[in-house]
Design a protein around this nucleic acid. Structure first.
Lengths: 236, 236
DNA sequence: GCTAGAACATGATATTTATCATGTTTTAGT
DNA sequence: ACTAAAACATGATAAATATCATGTTCTAGC
């Protein structure tokens, strides 16, 4: 982690408009801008660690981040994925606990840090902000519970298809309108869907052979979206 | 659902002190008491339904409730378990969505209903209440994410042991200090840990033979707690 | 641009778990 | 108290998935 040379004020930050802080008024944004600091992280670096004590809230400016827990046998479980505009570390902060997961940069990332005390004072003063944070948490809870149903009731093939759709929904597509806009290792995909790396690789190859996707290194191009959706067995 | 004949005011409700509403002052409690209504549900009845539109917040007065989703093949997935003092339906309410799961009474249950508009007005006026609700959601999110790790990385035996410990932590023990204070069918336990009913039954029998538990109908008595903990492979 | 380590790939095998089948016991409703 | 349905139980088998093994291809750092 190092200080970002290129940091700008929150007043001119477009990302803010897509974050929980879009509800703040001009004066509140000015105040926020004075309090916040910025940092950049290289791909692979830890932003915070499982068991660490939160000192503030992170707001992603650019880059992609995974939130993961290391299980008892050393296997990683990916819980959430974050992108520009997302806040990080809010759960531990609100319940006044240590982090129960780690945040790791999936690519070079820059983010802002808002001091814990300041954040809480803003939450108290601005119910709209508190509600925004609650809505973010609500969305994460819903995703987590859908993940539970998936892990519990679907087979690996369905889960993989669902995960690819989730990655598409989260990070969108590249300019070609078909390549998923994030690069994960096969192991990371496996760590999200709860399977072995080998099974994940095998099934990606199968999807490739079945004409559902095309593999170009870590880039995954969706060739047949409707077939992918059918493979995922989505009910809603 | 029918109106509870025996409803009391929030002022004298001891359960309130163990709920998110413990932060309210005397005037707020009086106001709440005037707004709330009460209802009782028989075992097996639905309190709300997946896809339904929330009209208010539920606060459990007595009884036990499961929150569950029905998967695409008709199999139920139990997501959360609620008891006296817990609030229900807050997630959908806060994110202004339909319910994504159903709430079903596990035994005869009585609960209070707080109107949606009134609840939101109280949230805005009392940041402490909002923070309490956020903390409740934070706790549920943490549990959900631990559930994900468990489903993803543990085998059925470990998950069953973990589930029994979870039931113990959630509903406590009976007066004998060893029988888990909730009665679930084998199918419901299976629906929580994400396995088939048969596998769940088989493993409970095994636990019985191994001297970890004793089975008395739907009552489960923990005989060897430390062995149960070891079987669950808990890291923290 | 070389090289070691990581990531990817695929086959063979073992293990876990689901499914099917069948019978018994418990429970809830008349 | 009786009876049908649900829940429980257990064995046999099938299917899904992990694990092990081995080789290839990328990729980051010197």
């Amino acid at each position: 982690m190092k200080k970002n040379q290129f940091e700008i004020g929150c007043e001119t930050c477009n990302i803010r408009l897509h974050s929980v802080f879009h509800v703040l008024d001009e004066a509140q944004v000015k105040s926020l801008s004075l309090q916040k600091s910025c940092a950049v992280y290289k791909k692979g670096q830890y932003i915070f660690n499982e068991g660490g004590i939160p000192s503030g809230l992170f707001c992603v400016n650019s880059g992609k981040i995974k939130l993961a827990i290391v299980g008892y046998d050393g296997k990683e479980q990916i819980l959430r994925l974050a992108k520009a505009g997302d806040i990080l570390g809010y759960r531990a902060l609100i319940s006044n606990e240590r982090y129960h997961s780690s945040a790791i940069a999936l690519e070079d990332t820059s983010l802002c840090i808002i001091d814990k005390q300041y954040f809480f004072s803003q939450l108290e003063q601005e119910p709209k902000l508190m509600l925004e944070v609650a809505r973010k948490m609500s969305a994460d809870l819903k995703k987590a519970e859908e993940h539970i149903v998936s892990l519990s009731q679907k087979n690996v093939r369905e889960r993989l298809a669902e995960a690819l759709l989730f990655l598409k929904a989260t990070y969108g597509l590249q300019d070609d309108k078909s390549t998923i806009n994030v690069k994960l290792t096969r192991e990371e995909i496996a760590d999200y869907i709860g399977t072995s790396t080998e099974s994940c690789i095998r099934l990606l190859s199968e999807f490739n052979q079945d004409g559902i996707i095309e593999l170009h290194g870590k880039s995954i191009k969706i060739i047949n979206l409707s077939l992918l959706i059918r493979t995922a067995n989505i009910e809603d």
